[in-house]
């Protein structure tokens, strides 16, 4: 079975662990629990009749990309940059994470998750900003809600499909 390491990165409290838990265990907790270090888990994904094992790395979030331990990113075949649609700063910081990831591997498949969609309306100004950032850096944006389970499967499924074709890793 093909195995691919995928890192979830982004500022603190954007919902990386919530997306991780929703996708891997289909569970959600209302309580915010700050992540220290990294949590690694395997999740099998079916991509066009093939099975792909995603080795998901839920990394510790900081106030911006400078606190991210770059050693966590080694060997990553793809990455999900998570932002919180209720906090503009986390959306704007996506650019820094993209630069950081692309500095190591310009061809690395990336996806942006605009999380906490359940807390904003789809026409909210922050959603527009997230679309603009995604368009500017040519990284597909998925609007998600780990709370409601919206967009989560779609986020990893679409990244998985790109990973099957991509061979490059950091």
């Amino acid at each position: 079975m093909v195995q691919r390491k995928v890192c979830l990165v982004g500022d603190f409290a954007v919902g990386k662990t919530s997306l991780f838990n929703r996708f891997v265990y289909n569970r959600f907790s209302e309580t915010y629990q700050s992540t220290i270090g990294v949590r690694v888990q395997r999740k099998i994904l079916k991509v066009r009749d093939h099975e792909l094992a995603l080795i998901l790395w839920d990394t510790e979030g900081g106030q911006d990309s400078t606190t991210l331990k770059e050693s966590y990113l080694k060997g990553a075949a793809g990455a999900v940059i998570v932002c919180d649609l209720t906090r503009t700063g986390t959306i704007l910081h996506c650019e820094e994470y993209i630069h950081l990831l692309r500095r190591e591997n310009p061809a690395l498949p990336l996806a942006i998750a605009g999380n906490k969609l359940d807390l904003v309306s789809p026409d909210h100004a922050h959603v527009t900003v997230a679309h603009q950032v995604a368009q500017l850096f040519q990284a597909p944006l998925t609007l998600s809600s780990a709370n409601l389970g919206v967009g989560v499967e779609q986020l990893f499924q679409s990244l998985g499909e790109r990973l099957v074709h991509a061979q490059t890793t950091i």
Partner: peptide, 29 residues
């Protein structure tokens, strides 16, 4: 050791002594 998956190239480099070591801190489960 699942967290080492993806680091294979790095691990081979440590064997070949072209890289001194690999440290991964605070893996939680």
């Amino acid at each position: 050791c699942l967290p080492l998956l993806g680091y294979e190239a790095h691990l081979y480099a440590i064997c070949a002594r072209t890289v001194p070591d690999l440290v991964i801190e605070q893996i939680n489960f």
